[in-house]
């Protein structure tokens, strides 16, 4: 249990970093789009890199944070059936969902790495970086999904009543 608590504290930090990065990236997205307008109307020359850069950034905002959503349970889900279950049924229902999510995360990481390997020598048009960066967020999100699922399973086993689960409270920076 103390080890698990220590692991969770490390993951808290990882979550904090993902949020901080995403928030900064979101602010940059606004600036990119503003810069595009400014370039077109004021400088009379459109920057050609903003669109591709924004498309890349949105992947880095959305995918890792989606994995965080599994830890913080902020994704939309239908809870009609789970709500009808006994605590014991609820426990197994959650285990089932977590195993499914873990499998999905593993497949996501695996596919992300495969796609990165295949595209590493291609370039993203107009910004010139390797196309592998397009698929890196998949790999990150997949790995983080597996880790967060493992954490939730570990807590569920260690503490079935989940009195001390680290992420019951909503997150704030």
């Amino acid at each position: 249990m103390p080890i698990l608590r220590a692991v969770s504290r490390v993951l808290d930090l990882a979550v904090w970093i993902i949020y901080a990065f995403s928030a900064l990236a979101m602010a940059s997205l606004v600036i990119f789009a503003g810069w595009q307008v400014w370039g077109r109307y004021v400088l009379n020359s459109s920057p050609t890199w903003t669109e591709q850069a924004a498309l890349l950034l949105i992947l880095y905002i959305s995918l890792p944070l989606a994995a965080v959503g599994i830890r913080q349970k902020f994704h939309l889900a239908v809870e009609i059936f789970p709500d009808m279950l006994s605590p014991r049924g609820r426990y197994w229902q959650e285990m089932f969902v977590l195993v499914g999510l873990g499998f999905f995360g593993w497949a996501m990481a695996d596919a992300g790495i495969e796609l990165m390997t295949r595209t590493v020598r291609q370039a993203i048009p107009l910004i010139g970086w390797s196309r592998a960066y397009t698929y890196l967020p998949l790999a990150i999100s997949g790995v983080m999904t597996v880790i967060f699922v493992a954490e939730r399973i570990a807590w569920a086993i260690a503490d079935p009543k989940r009195a001390s689960h680290p992420q019951s409270a909503p997150f704030s920076l």
């Binding site: 949020y19 979101m26 905002i61 995918l63 965080v68 959503g69 704030s172």
Partner: peptide
């Protein structure tokens, strides 16, 4: 500003993973 950004990226992740 920070709270709005955090809340925005959280909702964004929710919608985008669905789109994806």
């Amino acid at each position: 500003l920070v709270d709005s950004l955090v809340s925005t990226v959280r909702t964004t992740a929710m919608v985008m993973i669905l789109v994806a």
